[in-house]
Design a protein around this nucleic acid. Structure first.
Length: 908
DNA sequence: GTAGGGTTAG
C-alpha cells in the first residue's frame, strides 16, 4: 500500500517530502473517491486547508462530490454557494434529489430547488423537478407539489409533465382524499400537452376513479388502453379490483382477477392481499384464509398488510381474540409490526371496552420503538368515548397530537352522553386550535346542536357550509332530515329533503329518513310519493332491503291491503321489496278477505323466483277456509308438497277448524289422522274443534272416543272440552247425562265456559227441570270467567251489574227470563262473522306453533263461528259489534245500555 | 402506479 489510509498521515507525508501541489493531491482524492472513502476526503481536505496546501477547482469539485455522496447535503449546499465557480448543475441535481429521496425531506428539497432557480439562476434537470414532485406527492404535500409544477411551467423552464409527474400527482391527490383534483390535473395535462398516458399513469387514474366511486368508468379507460396497445399489468388489475372491494362487489373483484390470470398475468403479493382484504371486508374470514394459503403456496410471502386485513376483519366481527391470535402469529413469524397493526387491535379492544388490553398494547407499541401518531391516540379516545368515558378521553387529548378526527370523536362522545358543557368546550377548543372543519366534523356538530335543541344554530351551520367550502353529503342530509323529523319539524325536514333531491347524491338512507318521518307524523300519502319517487329513480345502488316496509305496514294498518298489493306488484323490479314485505301483504290480503289477490300475489312472487314459506301458505289456507273454499284449501294442501313445503301443525289445525265449522266432520277426522301420522300431537284446541263439530250431531260415542284418546295422550280437557260434550248431550236431549257430566268435571275443577253453562241451563229449562236449571245458573254466576264475560256488557253503565241483575232473577226464580238475558248477551258478544271479520284473525301469528297462538285460533275463530251460527243478529248487535271493532268502547257501552233498557222493558 | 388503522346517519 502506497498510501496509508489514516487521515493523520498528511503531516507525515509533508515531513517525508511530499510536494503539496494540487495535482498529486487531486490524484490522491480521486483515489479515495473511487474507494468511496468520502469521509476521508472531507477530513483530508480540512487538513489541506489547515496546512495551507494548494488546491484548485478540481480539488474543490472533488470535495463537493464527496459531501454530496456522503449525504452531507447542507454542507455541500453551503460549499456550492461559496464556490459557484466550481458548481456544476449536476451537483444541484444530486443535492436536491438526494435530499428528496435519501433524506426523505422533499420540502427542504423544494426550498433548495427554489433557491437554485431563483437565486443562482441554475436550472436543474427535469428529472430533479420530477423527483421533488414525486417526493411531495408521496407525502401528500400537494400544495407544495403544485409550487413545483408552477415552477416547471415558468417561462425559461418549461419542462413538460411526463408520466412520472402525472402518476405522482394523481396518486398524491388520492392520498389526501381529493381524487377529483387528480383527475382534473390529468385532464389539463392531456388537453394542453397531448400526453399519451402509459400504464403507470393509467393505474393512478384507475385509483382515482375507484376512490371517487366511479369504478364503472374504469372499463372505458381499459378499453382505450387495449385499443392503444398498452399492456395491462398486475398493478393495474389490483387497483381496479380494489375499486370493487370498496363497492363490496366481490363478484367483480373475482372477475377482474380471473381475467388477469387468463391473460397470463400472474398474481403478486399485493393482488393476493386485495383478495384477502376483499373477503375480510365482507366478513368471510375463512375465505380470506384460503387465499392466504394459496398465496403462500405460490411463494408470495404475506406481509403486515395482508395480516392486518385479516385482523381488521376479525375485529369488525367482534372476534378480537382471534385478531390478537393473528397478531401473536405475526410476532412468531418475525413479521415486522407497525402502527397499523397496533391500532387495529387498540381499536378492537377499545370498542369492546377492554382498556387493560388497550393500554397494554399501547405500551407494547411504544416499547417496540413505534411512536404513536394521532391515529393511535384517536383510537384509544374513541374507545373511551364509546363507553361513556368521554371526559377521560378529553383529559388524554390535552397532552397528545390532535387532529380534526380527535375533536369529532370527543364531540360525538359528548353528544351521545348528552353532555352539553362538554360539547360547548370541545367546540371552543376546536375553534381555538384553528382546525378547519371537515364534513364529518360538521355532521357531528349538526347532530350535537340537534341534541341541544339549538335548531337556529343547526340551520345557520347548514346554511353556512358553502362558505367553509363544505359540500353536504348524504350523512349531512340524513342527519338534518332525521333531526327535524324527530322533533316533529316536518317543514324543516322537507326543505332539506328538497335540497337533497336536487343534488346528484343517490342515497336511500335520506329517503328512508323522510319516509320514516312522514309516516310517524301521519303523512302517509307524502311518504308513498317519496317511495314511488325512489322507485322511479331506478337507484342503481344496492339498497338496504327493509325499505318499503314502512309504507306497507302503514297501509296494512289502515286496512288498505289492496293499496299495499298495488305497491308491491306495480312498481319496478329494482324496488327493494323483500320476501318479508310480500309475506305481510299476502297475510293482509287474506285477512281482508282478498283471497284471489293473495293467490295472485303468491304467483307473482313465485314467478320472481322467490319461494314463500309455510307461514304464508297457512295464511292463505286460513283465508280460503274462512271463505268456505274448502276444496281449494285441500288442493293447496296437496300442492304444498310439490312446492317442497312441509305442512306445519298450524296448517293441519287450520284446516281441521274450518272443516269442523262447516260440518265436514269426516274430512276433519281424515285430516286429523293425517296430522297424527305426520308426527304432530294435536293440542287440546284441535280436540275441542272436533268435539264441537261432533256435538252438533249429538254423536256421543264419537265424543267419548275422542275424550278417551285425550286421556291416553295425557291431554287435559278444558272448559271448551266440557262445553262441547255438554252440548253433545243436549243435542241428544240427554239432560241427565249432561248434568252428570257437568258435575263429574266440576269435581275435577273444570267448569264449562259461558256457552256450556247456557246450553245446560237452556236444556234443563226446556225439560222443565227448573230447579236444577236454577242451581246451575247460580253456579254459573259464581264462575269468575262467566261473570267477567257477562259484565263486559254493562261496564260503567249501571250501578247494578248484569250479573247482579241475573242473580236477582235467579233468586226470584225467574229462570226463563234469565235465560233470555243470557241469550241476548251471547248474541251481543259473539256477533256474526260478517260484522267483525278482523277480530277473528287479526293479531294471529300463523307462523308460530306455540300454545298461545293455537289457543287464540280456537277461542277466536272456532268459538266465534260456532256461536254465530247458533244465533241471528239484529240492529243492536251489529252496531255494538261494529263499535267494539273500531275500539269505540264508550259508544258500544251506550248502545248496550239502550239495548238492555229495551230488553228490561219487554220483560216487565 | 396497486393492498391494511382512528371520526359522522340509519
Amino acid at each position: 500500500m502506497l498510501f496509508h489510509p489514516r487521515p493523520l498521515s498528511l503531516q507525515t507525508l509533508l515531513k517525508r517530502g511530499f510536494t503539496p501541489t494540487p495535482k498529486p493531491i487531486n490524484r490522491f482524492l480521486l483515489f479515495l473517491f473511487h474507494l468511496h472513502k468520502f469521509d476521508l476526503i472531507t477530513h483530508f481536505f480540512s487538513q489541506l486547508k489547515a496546512n495551507n496546501a494548494p488546491t484548485n477547482h478540481k480539488t474543490l469539485s472533488l470535495l463537493t462530490w464527496a459531501l454530496l455522496k456522503s449525504h452531507r447535503f447542507e454542507e455541500a449546499e453551503q460549499f456550492m454557494y461559496t464556490h459557484r465557480e466550481i458548481t456544476h448543475s449536476f451537483m444541484w441535481d444530486t443535492l436536491i434529489q438526494g435530499i428528496c429521496t435519501k433524506r426523505h425531506d422533499p420540502e427542504k428539497a423544494l426550498t433548495f430547488l427554489q433557491r437554485c432557480v431563483r437565486d443562482s439562476g441554475v436550472l436543474p434537470s427535469s428529472l430533479t423537478f420530477c423527483a421533488v414532485v414525486h417526493g411531495l406527492s408521496s407525502k401528500g404535500l400537494m400544495g407544495r407539489a403544485i409550487e413545483v409544477l408552477e415552477l416547471m411551467g415558468d417561462d425559461g423552464v418549461n419542462y413538460p409533465f411526463d408520466d412520472f409527474v402525472c402518476s405522482s400527482v394523481i396518486s398524491g391527490f388520492c392520498r389526501v382524499g381529493k381524487p377529483e383534483l387528480g383527475l382534473g390535473f390529468f385532464k389539463n395535462v392531456t388537453e394542453c400537452g397531448g400526453l399519451r398516458p402509459n400504464v403507470v399513469t393509467c393505474t393512478a387514474l384507475v385509483g382515482a376513479l375507484c376512490k371517487m366511486g366511479k369504478v364503472g368508468e374504469v372499463c372505458g379507460l381499459v378499453q382505450w388502453m387495449e385499443r392503444e396497445g398498452l399492456g395491462l399489468d398486475v398493478v393495474l388489475y389490483s387497483a381496479w379490483a380494489c375499486g370493487y372491494v370498496e363497492e363490496r362487489v366481490l363478484g367483480e373483484v373475482f372477475g377482474r382477477m380471473r381475467e388477469m390470470v387468463e391473460k397470463g398475468i400472474g398474481h403478486d403479493f399485493v393482488s393476493y392481499t386485495v383478495l384477502v382484504d376483499g373477503f375480510s371486508k365482507l366478513g368471510d374470514v375463512e375465505k380470506s384464509f384460503t387465499f392466504l394459503a394459496k398465496m403462500i403456496k405460490e411463494g408470495h410471502r404475506p406481509n403486515k398488510v395482508t395480516y392486518s386485513a385479516i385482523m381488521s376483519a376479525y375485529c369488525k366481527k367482534g372476534k378480537v381474540e382471534d385478531a390478537f391470535g393473528v397478531f401473536e402469529s405475526m410476532k412468531d413469524l418475525g413479521i415486522e409490526l407497525d402502527e397499523y397493526v397496533f391500532v387495529i387491535l387498540i381499536d378492537g379492544f377499545g370498542r369492546r371496552g377492554d382498556f387493560d388490553k388497550v393500554f397494554g398494547l399501547f405500551d407494547e407499541m411504544e416499547k417496540s420503538g413505534i411512536s404513536p401518531s394521532v391515529v393511535a391516540y384517536n383510537a384509544v379516545m374513541n374507545g373511551l368515548c364509546k363507553h361513556g368515558r368521554t371526559s377521560e378521553a378529553d383529559e388524554l387529548s390535552r397532552n397528545v397530537a390532535k387532529d380534526v378526527i380527535t375533536y369529532s370523536t370527543l364531540l360525538h362522545g359528548y353528544t351521545e352522553e348528552e353532555n352539553i358543557p362538554g360539547i360547548l368546550h370541545t367546540k371552543r377548543r376546536l375553534e381555538e386550535a384553528g382546525i378547519a372543519m371537515d364534513i364529518v366534523m360538521c355532521n357531528v356538530l349538526i347532530k350535537a346542536l340537534f341534541m341541544m335543541g339549538a335548531f337556529e344554530d343547526v340551520y345557520a351551520l347548514y346554511k353556512g357550509m358553502a362558505e367553509m367550502d363544505l359540500v353536504p353529503n348524504s350523512v349531512t342530509y340524513c342527519t338534518m332530515i332525521d333531526g327535524y323529523c324527530k322533533v316533529g319539524r316536518i317543514d324543516g325536514a322537507l326543505e332539506v329533503f328538497d335540497e337533497f333531491r336536487r343534488t346528484s347524491i343517490s342515497s336511500h338512507a335520506c329517503y328512508n329518513s323522510i319516509i320514516n318521518g312522514l309516516c310517524k307524523n301521519g303523512m302517509a300519502e307524502m311518504a308513498i310519493e317519496a317511495l314511488l319517487e325512489l322507485s322511479h329513480k331506478g337507484l342503481e345502488l344496492d339498497i338496504a332491503s327493509t325499505f318499503p316496509s314502512f309504507i306497507l305496514k302503514i297501509l296494512i294498518k289502515e286496512g288498505r291491503a289492496l293499496d299495499a298489493y298495488k305497491l308491491v306488484t306495480g312498481t319496478q323490479d329494482n324496488l327493494p321489496v323483500i320476501y318479508v314485505d310480500y309475506a305481510i301483504v299476502i297475510d293482509a290480503l287474506c285477512k281482508g278477505g282478498y283471497l284471489n289477490k293473495a293467490l295472485d300475489l303468491c304467483a307473482f312472487v313465485e314467478e320472481k323466483g322467490m319461494s314463500l314459506n309455510i307461514v304464508v301458505y297457512n295464511s292463505i289456507l286460513n283465508g280460503l277456509c274462512h271463505e268456505g273454499r274448502l276444496i281449494e284449501a285441500f288442493r293447496l294442501l296437496d300442492s304444498l308438497e310439490k312446492l317442497n313445503l312441509v305442512p306445519s301443525e298450524i296448517t293441519y289445525a287450520t284446516l281441521i277448524y274450518a272443516l269442523c265449522r262447516e260440518g265436514f266432520l269426516l274430512d276433519a277426522e281424515h285430516v286429523f289422522r293425517k296430522m297424527v301420522l305426520k308426527g304432530f300431537q294435536p293440542k287440546v284446541q284441535v280436540y275441542n274443534s272436533l268435539l264441537d263439530g261432533i256435538s252438533k250431531f249429538g254423536q256421543l260415542e264419537k265424543a267419548f272416543e275422542l275424550l278417551n284418546d285425550m286421556g291416553t295422550k295425557y291431554i287435559e280437557p278444558d272448559s271448551l272440552t266440557v262445553s262441547a260434550v255438554i252440548n253433545c248431550y243436549c243435542q241428544k236431549g240427554d239432560m241427565q247425562g249432561a248434568l252428570e257430566f257437568y258435575y263429574k268435571f266440576k269435581r275435577k275443577e273444570i267448569s264449562p265456559d259461558f256457552f256450556g253453562f247456557l246450553y245446560l241451563i237452556r236444556g234443563l229449562c226446556t225439560k222443565g227441570r227448573m230447579e236444577e236449571a236454577r242451581g246451575v245458573l247460580r253456579e254459573m254466576l259464581q264462575s269468575k270467567h262467566a261473570v267477567e264475560l257477562i259484565n263486559i256488557v254493562n261496564k260503567e253503565v249501571d250501578t247494578e251489574s248484569i250479573s247482579d241483575f241475573l242473580a236477582t232473577l235467579c233468586e226470584q226464580g225467574r229462570v226463563h227470563e234469565a235465560v233470555t238475558v243470557l241469550n241476548e248477551i251471547a248474541r251481543m258478544l259473539f256477533p256474526v262473522q260478517s260484522i267483525v271479520p278482523s277480530s277473528c284473525t287479526s293479531g294471529l301469528n300463523f307462523g308460530s306453533c306455540d300454545d298461545k297462538d293455537v289457543r287464540n285460533i280456537t277461542t277466536n275463530n272456532d268459538g266465534h263461528m260456532r256461536r254465530s251460527q247458533l244465533h241471528g243478529f239484529d240492529f243492536y248487535y251489529s252496531r255494538i259489534a261494529a263499535l267494539c271493532a273500531k275500539g269505540e268502547l264508550q259508544k258500544a257501552n251506550q248502545s248496550a245500555k239502550e239495548m238492555l233498557s229495551d230488553l228490561t222493558e219487554c220483560m216487565n
